[in-house]
């Protein structure tokens, strides 16, 4: 993944839990089976209440969806440990979630899978941006800019999160650092 991410934002509020990210009835889909991985993407965020979110992340279960950036409020990803949640977002084409704060297991699962960057920010960006805004995120400069007005907002430092996600997740990182043997030696 490049460290500059450009694309359209999908904006949600506080406490978006894993049941809203991927409702429990879809958990029988096994993410390591390729066809089922793709299917998970088509359901990403389909648990959001329709009245509050009339614009859906994926319309007609079509992936990749038009949005590759999620902007959220507090406690994004709270609830269950299902890795299906970051995977559904990743499979839908989402590259990054920028939130005021994250629930711990979801945050960790984003990094372990390498599916998407979890980035937190000091500002309440879910009240600054609107769904459909074109954004440019620079993970080195730690900025997020709206194309329409060029206004720049800060991201908190990503630290090792960036290294691990950029490497492709926990296993890729663990191989680079010698925590697990190289693939050729493993099998």
């Amino acid at each position: 993944m490049s460290t500059v991410i450009r694309g359209k934002a999908y904006v949600v509020g506080d406490n978006i839990d894993t049941d809203q990210i991927i409702p429990a009835q879809y958990l029988a889909l096994v993410p390591t089976i390729e066809e089922e991985y793709r299917k998970l993407g088509t359901y990403a965020l389909c648990g959001l209440p329709v009245e509050e979110y009339p614009t859906r992340l994926t319309e007609n279960e079509k992936v990749p969806c038009p949005y590759n950036i999620i902007i959220a409020g507090r406690n994004f990803g709270c609830g269950s440990s299902r890795e299906h949640a970051p995977i559904a977002l990743g499979a839908a084409g989402v590259e990054i979630v920028i939130a005021e704060s994250f629930a711990r297991i979801f945050f960790r699962n984003c990094i372990a899978t390498g599916e998407l960057y979890p980035a937190d920010c000091p500002e309440r960006l879910c009240e600054v941006f609107k769904t459909g805004d074109a954004l440019e995120i620079d993970l080195d400069a730690l900025t997020v800019k709206r194309a329409a007005d060029g206004a720049s907002h800060a991201l908190n430092p990503l630290g090792e999160v960036k290294t691990v996600v950029a490497a492709g997740g926990l296993f890729a990182y663990a191989r680079e650092t010698g925590l697990v043997p190289e693939r050729s030696a493993a099998s």
Partner: peptide, 25 residues
């Protein structure tokens, strides 16, 4: 691989929920 793994903390142990990738590790 379940968030309510923390239940076992009732027995004086460190117990926590993790995702599939961590569990595979």
């Amino acid at each position: 691989t379940d968030s309510h793994t923390c239940t076992a903390g009732a027995f004086g142990e460190f117990a926590t929920g993790i995702g599939n990738t961590d569990a595979a590790f």
